[in-house]
């Protein structure tokens, strides 16, 4: 029995190494090893935890965005949702409201914005890119109007401390988010309803034929993305301690880049939450990696931009190559006895 188990284990390991997420993870490890060789302090537990801590809100945003991307849509409005919900709940906290109320209000705002996005995309057939781009602009303006153009500062310390709580030396939020990623991944890949999302993105007409409530699940995906953006806004407020009028500006592009780095396809149907999260950690680690390698911070965007392009193009080329091989094998399978066919052709 023992060798059998080993074989199964080996084949399982092999399957894992073939996954796109594994390659992303390998890439992350390589970055850490290279930077670690230049400056060993980069690999200290403290820095690793800091890297994870600063990528937390990006991971949360990436989770939500993955739902939307799986259905073949895109959500550009996450930065605006993050800013607005953080500002509103920040003002509640500042005026002496309880933390629970602030969190509930933030989640409600996120859900509402997501719902409006979803209605626009699923019911009114507006392209998701345009719908959420417009929504981004609208939420930003509403945030400025609501806060009267001022920063929300002096948040209560009890709220700020939430991001500092530690259990067994590990940041509590890191543990919660890590568990969240695993649970969402299980839901998306194992449960029937969870698989609806990628089914819609893979083949919408097919999903309709299978009885998947396509419109409803598209709306769900935007609502989930909105809620995740609101939670990210709360993490942002707790970690930074104040909310500027430009909070979360440009964050959407980083998150989309993270998801793409992690192997989530923008055309839908393909991708995992785990991959998107690893992508987010890579995008954020580049920041601190530059600091530890004593490279000026202004290289940041150029490096992440070229990295994104390189990885995506390499990925596309690799995918095409494997597709070609599959096609070849399929063609070979159609010919039962290749030699006979050849001799037959010659005889003719």
């Amino acid at each position: 029995m023992e060798p059998m188990k080993e074989v199964i284990l080996m084949s399982k390991l092999k399957a894992i190494t073939k996954k796109r997420e594994f390659r992303t993870f390998l890439f992350l490890v390589i970055i850490f090893v290279i930077v670690g060789m230049v400056n060993s302090e980069f690999l200290s537990i403290n820095n690793l935890q800091n890297s994870l801590k600063s990528s937390l809100l990006y991971i949360v945003l990436a989770i939500g965005l993955t739902f939307v991307l799986l259905t073949g849509n895109i959500d550009i409005s996450v930065g605006g949702t993050l800013g607005l919900s953080a500002a509103v709940s920040g003002l509640i906290l500042k005026n002496g409201g309880s933390i629970i109320v602030a969190i509930l209000v933030a989640v409600l705002i996120g859900a509402l914005i997501g719902f409006i996005n979803g209605i626009g995309v699923a019911k009114l057939n507006i392209s998701s890119f345009i719908m959420t781009l417009g929504m981004l602009e609208i939420t930003r303006v509403i945030q400025v109007i609501y806060t009267k153009g001022q920063w929300v500062e002096n948040l209560p310390t009890t709220f700020k401390q939430i991001s500092q709580v530690k259990i067994f030396g590990l940041n509590l939020l890191i543990i919660i988010v890590a568990i969240g990623v695993i649970l969402v991944q299980m839901y998306l890949s194992k449960s029937e309803k969870g698989r609806y999302f990628s089914a819609i993105g893979d083949n919408t007409d097919g999903a309709i034929l299978l009885g998947v409530p396509v419109q409803r699940y598209k709306i769900y995906s935007f609502v989930i993305s909105g809620i995740c953006a609101a939670i990210a806004g709360l993490i942002f407020a707790s970690q930074i301690g104040f909310i500027s009028t430009t909070a979360g500006m440009g964050i959407e592009m980083t998150v989309i880049a993270s998801a793409v780095l992690g192997g989530v396809s923008l055309s839908g149907g393909v991708g995992t939450v785990v991959g998107a999260s690893i992508g987010a950690v890579i995008m954020i680690s580049i920041n601190s990696a530059l600091v530890y390698m004593k490279i000026p911070a202004f290289w940041n965007d150029a490096i992440s931009g070229s990295l994104l392009i390189t990885i995506v193009v390499a990925d596309a080329l690799m995918a095409r190559r494997s597709n070609k091989n599959i096609k070849k094998e399929r063609l070979r399978a159609r010919v039962l006895k290749p030699e006979e066919v050849v001799t037959h052709a010659h005889a003719k």
Partner: peptide, 26 residues
């Protein structure tokens, strides 16, 4: 020719080109 989605490439381009501009200034 690489047949990658336009959105992804121009997103990377957006980061890259403004990044190059910042590097030149820096």
């Amino acid at each position: 020719y690489g047949r990658v989605q336009a959105m992804v490439i121009t997103l990377g381009g957006m980061l890259l080109y403004s990044g190059i501009a910042v590097v030149i200034v820096g």
